[in-house]
Protein backbone atom coordinates (compact mmCIF):
# COMPACT_ATOMS: atom_id res chain seq x y z
CA UNK A 1 0.00 0.00 0.00
CA UNK A 2 2.97 2.34 -0.44
CA UNK A 3 1.24 4.33 -3.17
CA UNK A 4 -1.52 5.11 -0.74
CA UNK A 5 0.79 7.24 1.42
CA UNK A 6 2.36 9.13 -1.45
CA UNK A 7 -0.76 9.65 -3.43
CA UNK A 8 -2.46 12.33 -1.26
CA UNK A 9 0.83 14.23 -1.07
CA UNK A 10 1.00 14.34 -4.85
CA UNK A 11 -2.53 15.74 -4.92
CA UNK A 12 -1.63 18.34 -2.30
CA UNK A 13 1.66 19.68 -3.61
CA UNK A 14 0.35 21.82 -6.50
CA UNK A 15 -1.97 23.78 -4.23
CA UNK A 16 0.67 24.36 -1.58
CA UNK A 17 3.31 25.48 -4.05
CA UNK A 18 0.88 27.80 -5.75
CA UNK A 19 -0.21 29.51 -2.55
CA UNK A 20 3.26 29.78 -1.04
CA UNK A 21 4.74 31.26 -4.20
CA UNK A 22 2.01 33.82 -4.41
CA UNK A 23 1.48 34.75 -0.79
CA UNK A 24 4.74 34.37 1.04
CA UNK A 25 6.01 37.81 0.16
CA UNK A 26 2.70 39.64 0.73
CA UNK A 27 2.38 37.98 4.14
CA UNK A 28 5.91 38.88 5.20
CA UNK A 29 5.37 42.40 3.93
CA UNK A 30 2.11 42.78 5.83
CA UNK A 31 3.54 41.52 9.10
CA UNK A 32 6.66 43.61 8.77
CA UNK A 33 4.70 46.74 8.08
CA UNK A 34 2.40 46.08 11.02
CA UNK A 35 4.94 45.22 13.69
CA UNK A 36 8.41 46.30 12.61
CA UNK A 37 9.76 49.06 14.81
CA UNK A 38 13.31 50.32 14.48
CA UNK A 39 13.24 52.00 17.86
CA UNK A 40 12.36 48.79 19.65
CA UNK A 41 14.83 47.30 22.17
CA UNK A 42 13.67 43.74 21.56
CA UNK A 43 16.03 41.24 20.00
CA UNK A 44 13.76 41.19 16.97
CA UNK A 45 12.88 44.84 16.39
CA UNK A 46 9.14 44.77 16.64
CA UNK A 47 6.48 46.44 18.71
CA UNK A 48 2.73 46.53 19.07
CA UNK A 49 2.53 50.33 19.01
CA UNK A 50 0.36 50.62 15.92
CA UNK A 51 -1.97 47.94 17.22
CA UNK A 52 -2.20 49.46 20.70
CA UNK A 53 -2.92 52.93 19.36
CA UNK A 54 -5.55 51.58 17.05
CA UNK A 55 -7.57 49.66 19.60
CA UNK A 56 -7.70 52.65 21.91
CA UNK A 57 -9.30 54.73 19.22
CA UNK A 58 -13.03 55.31 19.53
CA UNK A 59 -13.43 55.39 15.77
CA UNK A 60 -11.83 51.98 15.35
CA UNK A 61 -14.10 50.47 18.00
CA UNK A 62 -17.02 51.80 15.99
CA UNK A 63 -15.52 50.22 12.86
CA UNK A 64 -15.41 46.89 14.68
CA UNK A 65 -18.99 47.29 15.86
CA UNK A 66 -20.21 48.09 12.34
CA UNK A 67 -18.34 45.13 10.95
CA UNK A 68 -19.83 42.77 13.52
CA UNK A 69 -23.34 44.17 13.05
CA UNK A 70 -23.15 43.80 9.29
CA UNK A 71 -21.51 40.38 9.43
CA UNK A 72 -23.88 38.93 12.00
CA UNK A 73 -27.18 40.04 10.50
CA UNK A 74 -26.19 39.64 6.89
CA UNK A 75 -24.75 36.16 7.44
CA UNK A 76 -27.55 34.77 9.56
CA UNK A 77 -30.42 36.22 7.56
CA UNK A 78 -29.10 35.25 4.15
CA UNK A 79 -28.16 31.78 5.40
CA UNK A 80 -31.63 31.09 6.83
CA UNK A 81 -33.29 32.62 3.79
CA UNK A 82 -31.08 30.43 1.60
CA UNK A 83 -32.28 27.28 3.40
CA UNK A 84 -35.92 28.33 3.26
CA UNK A 85 -35.80 29.21 -0.42
CA UNK A 86 -33.91 26.04 -1.32
CA UNK A 87 -36.54 24.02 0.51
CA UNK A 88 -39.39 25.85 -1.24
CA UNK A 89 -37.77 25.32 -4.62
CA UNK A 90 -37.32 21.66 -3.84
CA UNK A 91 -40.99 21.31 -2.93
CA UNK A 92 -42.60 22.84 -5.98
CA UNK A 93 -42.86 21.39 -9.47
CA UNK A 94 -44.28 24.18 -11.61
CA UNK A 95 -42.07 27.12 -12.61
CA UNK A 96 -39.18 25.83 -10.54
CA UNK A 97 -36.45 26.90 -12.95
CA UNK A 98 -38.17 30.23 -13.43
CA UNK A 99 -37.92 30.96 -9.71
CA UNK A 100 -34.38 29.58 -9.54
CA UNK A 101 -33.18 31.95 -12.25
CA UNK A 102 -34.86 34.95 -10.62
CA UNK A 103 -33.60 34.13 -7.15
CA UNK A 104 -29.98 33.70 -8.14
CA UNK A 105 -29.94 36.56 -10.65
CA UNK A 106 -28.34 39.07 -8.19
CA UNK A 107 -25.20 36.92 -8.34
CA UNK A 108 -24.92 37.57 -12.05
CA UNK A 109 -24.92 41.36 -11.87
CA UNK A 110 -21.50 42.85 -11.26
CA UNK A 111 -21.39 44.16 -7.67
CA UNK A 112 -20.21 47.60 -8.77
CA UNK A 113 -23.10 47.96 -11.18
CA UNK A 114 -25.72 46.65 -8.79
CA UNK A 115 -24.37 48.85 -6.00
CA UNK A 116 -24.68 51.91 -8.22
CA UNK A 117 -28.23 50.90 -9.02
CA UNK A 118 -29.05 50.50 -5.32
CA UNK A 119 -27.52 53.89 -4.67
CA UNK A 120 -29.92 55.64 -7.05
CA UNK A 121 -32.82 53.55 -5.85
CA UNK A 122 -32.12 54.67 -2.29
CA UNK A 123 -31.91 58.33 -3.23
CA UNK A 124 -34.65 60.05 -1.20
CA UNK A 125 -35.25 62.67 -3.87
CA UNK A 126 -35.36 60.76 -7.13
CA UNK A 127 -35.03 57.12 -6.07
CA UNK A 128 -37.63 54.57 -7.12
CA UNK A 129 -38.02 53.19 -3.58
CA UNK A 130 -39.48 56.40 -2.22
CA UNK A 131 -41.69 56.68 -5.30
CA UNK A 132 -43.07 53.23 -4.57
CA UNK A 133 -43.67 54.10 -0.92
CA UNK A 134 -45.43 57.31 -1.88
CA UNK A 135 -47.52 55.47 -4.46
CA UNK A 136 -48.87 53.28 -1.66
CA UNK A 137 -49.44 56.32 0.50
CA UNK A 138 -46.49 56.01 2.87
CA UNK A 139 -43.98 58.68 3.82
CA UNK A 140 -40.67 58.70 1.98
CA UNK A 141 -37.68 57.40 3.95
CA UNK A 142 -34.10 58.60 4.34
CA UNK A 143 -32.62 55.13 3.65
CA UNK A 144 -28.82 55.33 3.57
CA UNK A 145 -28.55 59.06 4.17
CA UNK A 146 -29.42 58.95 7.85
CA UNK A 147 -26.89 57.82 10.44
CA UNK A 148 -29.42 55.66 12.26
CA UNK A 149 -30.64 53.63 9.29
CA UNK A 150 -27.69 53.58 6.87
CA UNK A 151 -26.04 50.43 8.18
CA UNK A 152 -29.33 48.52 8.17
CA UNK A 153 -29.87 49.21 4.49
CA UNK A 154 -26.28 48.40 3.63
CA UNK A 155 -26.92 45.07 5.35
CA UNK A 156 -30.04 44.60 3.22
CA UNK A 157 -28.01 45.14 0.07
CA UNK A 158 -25.46 42.61 1.27
CA UNK A 159 -28.25 40.11 1.97
CA UNK A 160 -29.64 40.76 -1.50
CA UNK A 161 -26.28 40.14 -3.06
CA UNK A 162 -25.28 36.98 -1.19
CA UNK A 163 -28.45 35.05 -0.38
CA UNK A 164 -28.29 33.58 -3.91
CA UNK A 165 -24.86 32.20 -3.05
CA UNK A 166 -26.30 30.32 -0.06
CA UNK A 167 -29.33 29.25 -2.04
CA UNK A 168 -27.26 27.85 -4.87
CA UNK A 169 -25.01 25.74 -2.64
CA UNK A 170 -27.80 24.46 -0.41
CA UNK A 171 -30.09 23.70 -3.33
CA UNK A 172 -27.33 21.77 -5.07
CA UNK A 173 -26.79 19.90 -1.82
CA UNK A 174 -30.46 19.00 -1.46
CA UNK A 175 -30.32 17.61 -4.97
CA UNK A 176 -27.57 15.14 -4.06
CA UNK A 177 -29.71 13.54 -1.37
CA UNK A 178 -30.90 10.26 -2.83
CA UNK A 179 -34.58 10.22 -3.74
CA UNK A 180 -35.20 6.99 -1.84
CA UNK A 181 -34.37 8.65 1.49
CA UNK A 182 -37.07 11.22 0.91
CA UNK A 183 -39.46 8.57 -0.34
CA UNK A 184 -39.02 6.34 2.67
CA UNK A 185 -39.54 9.38 4.88
CA UNK A 186 -42.83 10.22 3.23
CA UNK A 187 -43.96 6.57 3.47
CA UNK A 188 -43.24 6.72 7.19
CA UNK A 189 -45.66 9.66 7.31
CA UNK A 190 -43.08 12.34 8.07
CA UNK A 191 -44.01 15.62 6.46
CA UNK A 192 -41.58 17.27 4.14
CA UNK A 193 -40.64 20.10 6.50
CA UNK A 194 -39.76 17.70 9.30
CA UNK A 195 -37.89 15.61 6.77
CA UNK A 196 -35.83 18.72 5.93
CA UNK A 197 -35.01 19.47 9.55
CA UNK A 198 -34.36 15.95 10.79
CA UNK A 199 -33.01 14.13 7.75
CA UNK A 200 -31.80 16.35 4.88
CA UNK A 201 -30.08 19.13 6.81
CA UNK A 202 -28.12 16.75 9.08
CA UNK A 203 -26.91 14.88 5.99
CA UNK A 204 -25.78 18.18 4.52
CA UNK A 205 -24.20 19.35 7.77
CA UNK A 206 -20.73 19.80 6.26
CA UNK A 207 -21.99 21.63 3.24
CA UNK A 208 -24.11 23.94 5.38
CA UNK A 209 -21.17 24.68 7.63
CA UNK A 210 -19.01 25.54 4.64
CA UNK A 211 -21.69 27.73 3.13
CA UNK A 212 -21.93 29.51 6.46
CA UNK A 213 -18.16 30.01 6.67
CA UNK A 214 -17.89 31.48 3.20
CA UNK A 215 -20.93 33.65 3.67
CA UNK A 216 -19.43 34.87 6.94
CA UNK A 217 -16.16 35.73 5.27
CA UNK A 218 -17.75 37.57 2.38
CA UNK A 219 -19.85 39.63 4.78
CA UNK A 220 -16.77 40.43 6.82
CA UNK A 221 -14.99 41.62 3.71
CA UNK A 222 -17.92 43.50 2.14
CA UNK A 223 -16.38 46.38 0.24
CA UNK A 224 -17.74 47.22 -3.21
CA UNK A 225 -21.30 47.90 -2.13
CA UNK A 226 -20.39 50.10 0.86
CA UNK A 227 -17.79 52.00 -1.11
CA UNK A 228 -20.22 52.79 -3.89
CA UNK A 229 -23.33 53.48 -1.81
CA UNK A 230 -22.11 55.47 1.19
CA UNK A 231 -18.26 55.55 1.19
CA UNK A 232 -18.54 54.85 4.92
CA UNK A 233 -20.87 57.77 5.70
CA UNK A 234 -23.00 59.53 6.73
CA UNK A 235 -20.85 60.42 9.70
CA UNK A 236 -18.96 57.17 10.09
CA UNK A 237 -22.15 55.15 10.29
CA UNK A 238 -21.21 52.55 7.69
CA UNK A 239 -17.45 52.57 8.04
CA UNK A 240 -16.38 48.97 8.56
CA UNK A 241 -12.87 47.70 9.19
CA UNK A 242 -12.35 46.98 5.50
CA UNK A 243 -13.52 50.42 4.43
CA UNK A 244 -11.22 51.98 6.99
CA UNK A 245 -8.31 49.89 5.77
CA UNK A 246 -9.00 51.08 2.23
CA UNK A 247 -8.76 54.71 3.28
CA UNK A 248 -5.61 54.19 5.30
CA UNK A 249 -3.94 52.33 2.44
CA UNK A 250 -4.81 54.46 -0.57
CA UNK A 251 -5.96 57.87 0.61
CA UNK A 252 -4.22 58.63 3.86
CA UNK A 253 -0.91 56.85 3.26
CA UNK A 254 -0.85 54.97 6.52
CA UNK A 255 -0.25 51.45 5.18
CA UNK A 256 0.84 50.19 8.61
CA UNK A 257 -2.71 50.66 9.88
CA UNK A 258 -4.07 48.75 6.91
CA UNK A 259 -1.69 45.90 7.70
CA UNK A 260 -2.71 45.82 11.34
CA UNK A 261 -6.40 45.77 10.40
CA UNK A 262 -5.70 43.01 7.88
CA UNK A 263 -3.99 40.86 10.50
CA UNK A 264 -6.76 41.64 12.98
CA UNK A 265 -9.34 40.43 10.44
CA UNK A 266 -7.25 37.35 9.69
CA UNK A 267 -6.87 36.32 13.32
CA UNK A 268 -10.48 37.10 14.18
CA UNK A 269 -11.90 35.12 11.29
CA UNK A 270 -9.54 32.20 11.90
CA UNK A 271 -10.71 32.04 15.50
CA UNK A 272 -14.33 32.19 14.38
CA UNK A 273 -14.01 29.50 11.74
CA UNK A 274 -11.62 27.21 13.55
CA UNK A 275 -14.38 25.36 15.32
CA UNK A 276 -16.27 24.81 12.09
CA UNK A 277 -13.17 23.78 10.18
CA UNK A 278 -12.20 21.22 12.80
CA UNK A 279 -15.77 19.95 12.91
CA UNK A 280 -15.69 19.28 9.19
CA UNK A 281 -12.37 17.52 9.58
CA UNK A 282 -13.80 15.27 12.33
CA UNK A 283 -16.84 14.27 10.30
CA UNK A 284 -15.00 12.15 7.81
CA UNK A 285 -13.25 9.90 10.32
Amino acid sequence: MKNKTYFPIILTIPVVIFLLALLIYPLIYTFTLAFYDEASDNFIPFSLNVFNNLIQEERFLKNVYHTIFLTFFSTSISFLLGIILAYCLDQIKIARSFFLVILISPLAIMPVVSALTWRTMFNPLYGILNSILKFFGFEGMEWVTDTSSALTWITVVDIWQWTPFCLLLIYAGLKTIPVDIKESASIDGINSFKELIYISLPILFNLLLITLIFRFMEAFKAFDSIMVITQGGPGNATETMVIRSYYTAFRWYKPEITSVIGIFILIFTILCTRWAGTKIGEQEN
Partner: peptide, 19 residues
Protein backbone atom coordinates in the same frame (compact mmCIF):
# COMPACT_ATOMS: atom_id res chain seq x y z
CA UNK B 1 -3.01 23.10 4.96
CA UNK B 2 -6.79 23.12 4.67
CA UNK B 3 -7.00 25.89 7.23
CA UNK B 4 -4.27 27.84 5.51
CA UNK B 5 -6.23 27.73 2.26
CA UNK B 6 -9.30 28.94 4.08
CA UNK B 7 -7.36 31.83 5.54
CA UNK B 8 -6.24 32.99 2.09
CA UNK B 9 -9.86 33.83 1.47
CA UNK B 10 -10.02 35.96 4.61
CA UNK B 11 -7.21 38.33 3.83
CA UNK B 12 -8.90 41.27 2.10
CA UNK B 13 -7.39 42.11 -1.27
CA UNK B 14 -6.89 45.69 -0.12
CA UNK B 15 -4.40 44.61 2.53
CA UNK B 16 -2.15 42.60 0.24
CA UNK B 17 -2.61 44.70 -2.92
CA UNK B 18 0.69 46.56 -2.77
CA UNK B 19 3.01 43.59 -2.05
Amino acid sequence: IAHFILSTKMLPGIVIAIP
